Lab assay of single mutants.
Amino acid sequence: KKYKIKVYVKDKKTKKWKKIKEIEVDTKEEALEAIKKLPPNYEVKIVP
């Protein structure tokens, strides 16, 4: 079972969220580790 991490950042001009990358991992633990490495201003969604 794979997890997709969708990473969004808020556009300063439009104030809208835009997706900047998608990370695919195998476990939820890996997903949480990957999220920890991202800057705090990123919004993250984990999709099972």
Rank of each mutant, 00 (worst) to 15 (best):
residue 1 K to R: 11
residue 1 K to F: 14
residue 1 K to I: 14
residue 1 K to W: 10
residue 2 K to Q: 08
residue 2 K to R: 13
residue 2 K to A: 11
residue 3 Y to Q: 01
residue 3 Y to W: 14
residue 3 Y to F: 14
residue 4 K to S: 07
residue 4 K to P: 00
residue 4 K to D: 01
residue 4 K to A: 05
residue 5 I to S: 00
residue 5 I to M: 05
residue 5 I to Y: 06
residue 6 K to D: 06
residue 6 K to L: 15
residue 6 K to C: 06
residue 6 K to S: 13
residue 6 K to P: 01
residue 7 V to D: 00
residue 7 V to A: 03
residue 7 V to C: 08
residue 8 Y to G: 00
residue 8 Y to K: 00
residue 8 Y to H: 00
residue 9 V to H: 06
residue 9 V to Q: 08
residue 10 K to F: 15
residue 10 K to W: 15
residue 10 K to T: 04
residue 10 K to V: 10
residue 10 K to N: 04
residue 11 D to M: 06
residue 12 K to F: 10
residue 12 K to Y: 10
residue 12 K to E: 13
residue 13 K to C: 09
residue 13 K to I: 12
residue 13 K to Q: 08
residue 14 T to S: 09
residue 14 T to H: 05
residue 14 T to E: 04
residue 14 T to W: 04
residue 15 K to Q: 12
residue 15 K to M: 10
residue 15 K to W: 02
residue 16 K to G: 04
residue 16 K to D: 03
residue 16 K to Q: 07
residue 16 K to R: 11
residue 17 W to C: 04
residue 17 W to A: 01
residue 18 K to P: 00
residue 18 K to R: 13
residue 18 K to W: 09
residue 18 K to L: 10
residue 19 K to C: 11
residue 19 K to W: 08
residue 20 I to N: 01
residue 20 I to P: 00
residue 20 I to H: 03
residue 21 K to A: 13
residue 21 K to P: 01
residue 21 K to I: 14
residue 22 E to Q: 05
residue 22 E to M: 04
residue 22 E to A: 03
residue 22 E to F: 03
residue 22 E to P: 00
residue 23 I to G: 01
residue 23 I to H: 03
residue 23 I to L: 09
residue 23 I to D: 02
residue 23 I to V: 07
residue 24 E to K: 05
residue 25 V to G: 01
residue 25 V to D: 00
residue 26 D to K: 08
residue 27 T to R: 02
residue 28 K to C: 15
residue 28 K to L: 15
residue 29 E to F: 09
residue 29 E to W: 11
residue 29 E to C: 11
residue 29 E to G: 06
residue 30 E to V: 03
residue 30 E to Q: 12
residue 30 E to C: 04
residue 30 E to L: 08
residue 31 A to D: 00
residue 31 A to R: 01
residue 31 A to H: 01
residue 33 E to M: 08
residue 33 E to P: 01
residue 34 A to E: 15
residue 34 A to H: 12
residue 34 A to W: 15
residue 35 I to W: 04
residue 35 I to E: 01
residue 35 I to N: 01
residue 35 I to C: 06
residue 35 I to H: 02
residue 36 K to E: 07
residue 37 K to G: 11
residue 38 L to P: 02
residue 38 L to V: 05
residue 39 P to E: 06
residue 39 P to C: 06
residue 40 P to T: 07
residue 40 P to M: 09
residue 40 P to L: 09
residue 40 P to V: 10
residue 41 N to E: 14
residue 42 Y to Q: 06
residue 42 Y to I: 06
residue 42 Y to A: 11
residue 43 E to F: 15
residue 43 E to R: 15
residue 43 E to L: 15
residue 44 V to P: 03
residue 45 K to I: 15
residue 46 I to K: 01
residue 46 I to M: 08
residue 47 V to I: 13
residue 47 V to S: 10
residue 48 P to G: 09
residue 48 P to E: 14
